[in-house]
Structures are given as structure tokens and as C-alpha cells.
Amino acid sequence: MLRFLLRRLFHGVFVVWGVVTAVFFLVRLTGDPAVFLVDQSATRAEIEHARHLLGLDRSLPEQYGAFLLAAPRGDFGESIRSKQPAMRLVLQHLWPATVELAVVAALLSTVLAVPLGVLSATHKDGMADHVSRLGSLLLQSMPGFWLGLLLILLFAVELRGLLPAYGSGTWRHLILPAVALAAAPLAQNARLVRAGMLDVLQQDFVRTARAKGVPERTVLYRHAFKNAAIPFITVTGLSLGFMLSGAIIIETVFAWPGLGRLIVQAVPGRDFPVIQAGVFVFALIFVALNLLVDLLYAVVDPRVRLS
């Protein structure tokens, strides 16, 4: 187990280094951020002066060397747009805004998906199954921004401010964006659980458990669901990773000050330090979540060996 963890951590360091290195060079292929900092009536001399102040007139290997020395200390430089340390900016947007939205949405989408999927599978072709499948189809088909606007119109406008239309800071602010963000993954997870359960419920060990008189609830959640959970865990892990990387559309509709909007603004603005810091954090999140998912495999399926 310890060897497994050490090996995965070692791999993780390589993955993170590879990703940030690729991003370091790729963003520099997209152009020069200095042009964003000057007026449109700027001459080449003014642009050159801005490049000099940003250190972009140094050679690429020189810039990369400085980056490699500073990055392990969490120093990704100063944001070109907002003149703040890039990592501080990324962390300010990650915590609490992005983390609380992602965690609540992930909880909603998993906690509701499991009973819905199980209900749908155990009542295959029945009314509950039809309703669950139709609901899933609807939720998956609805664009997030549209669902978000509908929720705002209903709960903020029609119901005269029952829930806030925008912003963050309290649990009331969290409800609408979390529901809008959880909708599509909830539907996807419910269908995944249903498909997995339908497969597992045909297996001999389920029939045996039932024949032995094991209570149906135990059969479903302890025996069957545990076996159907592997693909569900994988998708949930990835889904949480994507949510923690920022949900740009939901953040935009609800004016949620999360990481997604920060990065999406940084990319067209060629804000290299913020992009690099953001990608570094994303890489860490995905490496950590993948490791967690692998550990969970072993928990739900003892046949998986962590060696």
C-alpha cells in the first residue's frame, strides 16, 4: 500500500511537471500579453517597453529557467491583468467559492443519483423507471445556462427574492447554482447506476443472497450496488475534478466568483502567470482525485490489489 502510494505520488509529480511545462510553452505560442496592456493607439516602442517591464523580452529558456526555480515555491509570478500574485488569485477563487459549489453539487448529484438509479433498475419498465429516465433525459438535455436562468426567474423574480439571483457568501446563495450545476451529472449518474444495477441484479450472487433470505435493502445496497459502483466512482471522481476546475457557465449566470471565470478571462487576455498557476492547481486536483478513486476501487472491490 505504501509502495503504491509512493509510486503514484512520484507519477503525480511527473504529470504535474509535464502539464505545466506544456502549458508554459503553449501559451507563449498564442501571442504576446503586452498588447493588451497598451492603448490601441500605442506604437511599437510603447509595446516593447511593456514587454520589457513584464520580462517577456528575455529569451524563452531564460524565462523557463526562472519559472522552474520559482514554481515549486508556489511563485507563478504576478498576474498581468490584475497585478496580484497569480497563485494567490487562483487560491482565492478556488476557496471557498469553487470548492463549496463543486462539493455541494457533487454531493447532490451522487446522493440523489444512487437511490434514483437503484429505484429505476429495481422497477425496470415500471412507472418509477419511466419517470426517472425521462427526468434524466430532460436534465441532461437542458443547457446549464438555460436551467440557471429559469431557476433565477422562478425563485428570485417570480417568488420575489425567495433565493438570491446572484452572488455568493451564504447557503441561500449556494442553492440555485448548486442545483443548476448538479443537474446534468445527476442525470448521468442515475443512468449509470441504473445500467450497472441492471447488470449486477442478473448475477448469481444476487439470486443466492435473495434465496438466503437477505433483506432486499441489504441485497441492493450492500451486495449489488457495491459491485455496480466501480464505473460510478470513476465518473464521479472525474466529474468532481471538472467541477473543481470551475463551472464557467454556471459561474457566469449566477455571478459566482469561482475559478472557471478567472481562467476563462485569463486565456484570451494571455495572462500567462494565472493560466500557469490555474493549470498547476487543476493538475494537482486531478492527480489527487485519481489517486482517491484508485483507493476507493480497493475499498469497494477487494479483488483490486494496490500493489
Partner: peptide
């Protein structure tokens, strides 16, 4: 000054009195 990027969101907030 409250940032609400989406025009629809800004107008909904006005209609909601927020």
C-alpha cells in the same frame, strides 16, 4: 458594484429588487 456577467442575470436581479 456587483459583477453579474450575464445580461439576463443582471436584469433578473433588478426585477427581483436585489
Amino acid at each position: 458594484f456587483q459583477v453579474i456577467p450575464e445580461a439576463g442575470g443582471r436584469l433578473a436581479a433588478l426585477r427581483a429588487g436585489q
